[in-house]
Each structure stands twice: as structure tokens, then as C-alpha cells.
Computed example of a mutant assay.
Amino acid sequence: MAKPGKNNLITDVAGISVGQAEDARVRTGTTLILAEKPAVAAVCVAGGGPGTRETDLLAGGTLVDAVDAICLSGGSAFGLAAADGVAAGLKKAGRGFGLIDLPTVPKSPIVPAAILYDLANGGDKDWGEASPYAALGRKAYDNASGTFRLGRAGAGYGAAAGAHLGGTGSASIVTRDRITVGALAAVNCYGSVYMPGTDAFWAWPYEIDGEFGGVRPPSDFSMNAEDWGAAKLNPSLGQNTTIACIATDAILTPDQAKRVAQMALSGFSRAIRPVFAPFDGDAVFVLATGKRALPDPTAATLARIGELAASTLARAIARGVYMSGR
């Protein structure tokens, strides 16, 4: 049977590390998913109010088909500057894409990014002319490792999941033929992650070994199409977002990574209700580190990876909210 990796984190995927940084005064943070070597990447954006950087590079048919890192951040549009700090760290390490290999010409680090809105969470946003996000990005880069905190940490530090605390969550799965898929999510959704009137997560069918509390819905639970549970009461445009990254050690082409991203979107739907609203900025990236050849390189195997991405993402979302309350 497939089972979680050693740490049940996205960093169980070979070639992936994660760094995080927070600013308690501002009540915000940044999460970096760092690839050991340039990784094939893709993205799917499903929310109606996204905030992203360099996602056009991942559309296919472009010059660059691999990235150095993915940056997820709070801060709304200001948070996109976190990728500048990440790029600075990568430049110092000599990483990036270059058409010309000359010592006097720096390479350009490729760091697609997405942000969530946490500007109205009560933190001190009077930071003057320079936002804290580039510094947070650089700190996250310097902190990158194989383990990291869940819950009120990184990009999910100042987030809210419906009427509950949001947070950063992660999970992983390893198949019987040793393919590893991991997910990381920063959860700041409009919709509820809990079933109405219960402490059970919508994602409960995908839970493994009680990783987000083991609560199950009551036997007499009745579904009401108009009862969403504890969603945010007064959502506003652009203020509600879940941003996520899937990683796998499988060798994928850019087109295959795009298909995995498209399938992974259903992980949002399994964990949050409603989702992809006009005021959400939901987006999911995919990184393929290329450490493991597909045992059966067919569409059926790709479908397996896509389904594992979706279920693992649903688990990561629930874990992020669960750990925020611990």
C-alpha cells in the first residue's frame, strides 16, 4: 500500500527543501520550496482573484522549462517581493538561467510565486516605503532544510481558513513502486474546511493515521447543498486564497507536469467548500525533480500521480488548519 513518507512532508520528495520566515509584528510570512537542481514545473490558477509572478513562463512553449524555486507568501501584492529575496540568495549561489555563460553576466534565478491576502488580519502594516517581504524571502532561503513547521508558520502565518485559523500544511505519499508525491499548502480560504456543525474536515476520507485529528462525521450527518459551514462572513475581492505546491521525484515533461497540476486542483475541492470563488486566488504549482523514471511511462501512470497529488493536497490543507489549532 501507498503510505506517507518519513516526515509526511513535501520534503520527502528527493531534491526538495523548504524554508520559512515570519514577521510576528506584521502577522505575515513566506514559504519557499527550493529545488536542489532546476526542476520541470507547471501551474494552474483556478481562483478569480489571483496574485502571481512569472507564471507565464510555465505556460508551455517558452524558453525556460525548469525553475529554481517556488515562493508562496502572505502580503497580497506586496508579498510578491518575497521572490526578490529568494532570487538574491540563488544569485549568490550562482544559480539561475543564462543564455550567455560569462563571469561578468549574472544568471537569472527562476522563481515563480503566488500570494495570499493577509493585510486585514490586525498586524502592523505601517512598514513605510519598504515592505518586509524581500527580507522574509531571503531569510526563508537561508533557512531551507528538510524539515519545517506546520500551522502558524511561513506563508500561512497570518491566514484564516473560513472562520478558523488558517496555516501552512504539508503531506506526502510513497507508492508501492517508490514514486513520491508531496504537497504544501498555505490556507487562507473563504470556504470552510470543516463539515457543517462538526469537527470533521471535508478531507477526512483521505486522512492517513490520524494526521489531522481522526475526527469522523456523525452517522446521521445530512448534506445540505446551501450549508457551507464556517466560511468567512464578509469576503472581499482578493482576500481569500489557498496557494499550494506539489512536488514529485518522477521524471515528467512540462506537459505532463501541467496535467498533474490540473488534476491536483481537485484537492482544493475535496478539502474546502466552496472553493475557486470570484474572490479567491487559488493556485497550485507542480515541481518534478526527475530523480525517478516512471516504472510504466503511460497515461495511466500519469493519472495515478495526478490523483495522488489531489489527495495529498487535500491532506496538506487539513493538516495546515489542524496544526494551527494545536
Rank of each mutant, 00 (worst) to 15 (best):
A171Q: 06
T180V: 12
D280R: 00
L32Q: 08
A77I: 04
G123Q: 01
G191V: 01
P218M: 00
V275F: 11
F212V: 04
W204N: 07
A120P: 01
A318C: 08
K107Q: 11
G156F: 13
D142K: 09
K125C: 10
A171F: 07
G60Y: 06
E22S: 06
G191H: 02
L102Y: 10
P295V: 00
T31S: 15
A247H: 12
V193N: 05
V321M: 09
Q256A: 14
S131R: 02
R273M: 01
D296P: 08
T147A: 12
A24F: 09
L58I: 05
A318I: 09
P235N: 04
A277K: 15
G191I: 03
A81K: 13
S76K: 01
L308W: 12
L32H: 12
A21V: 02
T242W: 09
G166A: 08
L99W: 06
T241V: 08
V187F: 09
D296R: 05
F279A: 11
L308Y: 13
E22Q: 15
R138K: 13
I100G: 00
F279M: 09
C44W: 02
D124Y: 02
A264G: 15
G166Y: 08
V215Q: 08
G146Y: 07
C189K: 04
G60K: 01
G281E: 10
G151L: 02
G60N: 07
S269V: 13
C245V: 15
G19A: 02
G154W: 05
A42H: 09
V111I: 04
P295G: 02
L63V: 12
G214W: 07
A59N: 08
T242L: 05
D68Q: 08
G60C: 05
G19L: 01
D255Y: 07
R176M: 13
V45H: 11
Y206T: 03
V64F: 08
G154K: 01
D23A: 12
R270K: 15
K125S: 03
A186V: 04
G214D: 05
V45K: 06
A160Q: 14
G137C: 01
I10Y: 14
R178G: 02
T175P: 06
C71L: 04
I10G: 14
